[in-house]
Design a protein around this nucleic acid. Structure first.
Lengths: 143, 143
DNA sequence: AAAATAAAAGATAAATTTGTCTTTTATTGA
DNA sequence: TCAATAAAAGACAAATTTATCTTTTATTTT
């Protein structure tokens, strides 16, 4: 569904959102452990998300990654789009670039519904909100 | 959503189903043109699907790929599963191997529905049936 | 039987994704 | 101001996916 990079990104951002809620910053090392991902690799990914303004970071001791008020308004759809692009939301299921309402692939209409569902779900998942369930131990991020 | 290989596979199989309906065989070259894919590459892919019994082929002049009666009963879900595996139907959206009902990732319940939808749609798309729309020019396979 | 045709098979190569390592820069606290 | 900390940046490497090329095998037609 998503690239591995994107999966890591989503998990990392959720992890950051979780700690960030208590106004704490979290290091790459801790995130890597927390989501069971290669440290340097998510370093790169988060660096990227930082450049795009989706998350914040601070160097030095007591530094780390966090979310400011505006970042908490972003959704997982924004994260996915930043990493994998929006092909998953709009692209043809069979990889046809010319696929459209006027010239649909054999699965166009069925897949349209699915893509919309995916988009809807991810748009609804705001970084600042949906992590409540995490703290209630209803959801897990490792392995 | 699917790997490129899988997209080619699905398009190729649909193409074969189309011509096969008139009891004709179709060559790799023609398929490649018909679905706008690299010739040798889909050669490999079809070779694989052949080994798995999803499609049939015959060497030599007048040879090519076709579907027999039993193959027409297969669905696109079978094709996707043969190429990409069933991760798309059952895997965790965030790539967590331990994700389950008991230990769900933050998107588990939402994604379950989507994965089921994808599976349902592809299972319903039988090779021998759903290509009627193609002949009516309601769907296209190129580009 | 020989030539032509088309898939099967195998080897190789290019491109992309994923992952690692090292150096640099910014920030903090002693 | 110096040492320690942590992200940023850049170079590199491994793995996987995608694509190409060549040779072999099976089948048909002449």
């Amino acid at each position: 569904m998503f690239s591995k990079t994107c999966e890591y990104a989503v998990r990392a951002v959720i992890y950051i959102a979780q700690t960030s809620k208590h106004d704490e910053k979290v290091s790459i090392k801790e995130i890597a452990k927390g989501i069971d991902a290669p440290e340097h690799f998510i370093g790169k990914i988060l660096q990227d998300l930082g450049k795009k303004g989706l998350i914040q970071s601070l160097k030095g001791p007591k530094g780390g990654f966090y979310l400011d008020a505006s970042s908490r308004k972003y959704s997982l759809a924004d994260v996915v789009k930043a990493v994998d692009g929006d092909k998953i939301f709009y692209g043809c299921g069979l990889g046809l670039s010319q696929c459209s309402e006027a010239q649909p692939c054999p699965l166009h209409h069925e897949f349209k519904k699915i893509r919309n569902d995916i988009h809807r779900i991810l748009k609804k998942a705001k970084l600042g909100e949906f992590n409540d369930q995490l703290e209630q131990h209803l959801a897990f991020l490792r392995r």
